[in-house]
Amino acid sequence: AVSDRLIGRKGVVMEAISPQNSALVKVDGETWRATSGTVLDVGEEVSVKAIEGVKLVVEKLE
């Protein structure tokens, strides 16, 4: 799938994300809905860990 190429890519949080709420991230110039197990604020850099349906699963870039 096209989205599989995004695993391992870096992105930027466009809307705050919490474990209860998905929000938008920008990866390679494209906007995607994403979820995370932690709270992520706007502007934080993230890494794509997986794809669940049409959502990216991201975590904060260390």
Results as ranks from 00 to 15, higher is better:
E44M: 14
K10G: 04
T38P: 04
E45V: 13
D41P: 06
N21G: 14
V54N: 15
L61C: 08
G43N: 05
I17G: 15
I51A: 03
E59S: 07
A50F: 06
R33G: 09
I7Q: 02
P19F: 11
I51S: 02
A34N: 04
E59H: 05
A16C: 12
K55F: 15
I7R: 04
T31H: 08
G29A: 04
K60H: 06
V54Y: 13
K55Q: 13
S36R: 00
V13M: 09
D41F: 15
T35I: 14
V39E: 10
V25K: 03
L61V: 11
D41A: 14
S18A: 08
G29Y: 04
T31P: 04
V13T: 05
G11P: 03
E15F: 09
G43W: 04
T31N: 09
Q20D: 13
V42A: 07
E62Y: 13
P19L: 10
V46G: 01
V54G: 15
A34G: 05
V25M: 03
G8F: 03
N21F: 11
T31F: 14
G29N: 08
L56F: 03
D4A: 13
N21A: 10
V12W: 08
E15Q: 12
V57Y: 08
L24Y: 10
I51G: 01
A16P: 10
I7M: 06
D4H: 14
I17N: 14
V39F: 14
S22Y: 14
R5M: 08
A50L: 06
V57A: 04
V27L: 06
D41S: 14
W32Y: 15
G53K: 03
E15A: 11
A50H: 06
S18R: 08
G8S: 03
L56N: 00
V58P: 00
V27P: 01
K49V: 15
L24E: 03
S18G: 13
S22C: 15
E52S: 10
G37N: 14
V42G: 03
V12F: 09
T31K: 06
E15D: 06
G53M: 03
R5Y: 10
K10Q: 08
E62V: 12
D28M: 07
V58Y: 01
V58I: 05
G53W: 04
A1Y: 12
A1K: 11
M14W: 06
V42Q: 05
W32S: 00
M14A: 05
V2A: 11
G29L: 04
V42F: 05
V2M: 12
G8Q: 02
E44C: 12
I7Y: 04
D28W: 05
E45Y: 13
A34Q: 02
E59A: 09
K10E: 05
V13N: 00
E30S: 06
L56E: 02
V2F: 12
T38M: 10
V12D: 02
L6D: 00
S22E: 14
V25W: 00
V27T: 01
A1F: 12
V39S: 12
V48D: 02
K49A: 07
V58T: 01
V58M: 01
D4L: 12
A16F: 15
G37Q: 13
L24N: 05
A23L: 15
V42H: 03
K55S: 13
L56C: 01
G8V: 03
G43F: 04
V39C: 13
V48F: 02
V57F: 08
S36T: 05
E45F: 13
R33D: 08
E15H: 08
I51Q: 04
V57K: 05
T38Y: 10
E52R: 10
G8M: 04
G8T: 03
I17V: 11
K55C: 15
Q20P: 14
R33F: 14
L24V: 08
E59Q: 08
D28I: 03
A1W: 13
K55V: 15
K10H: 10
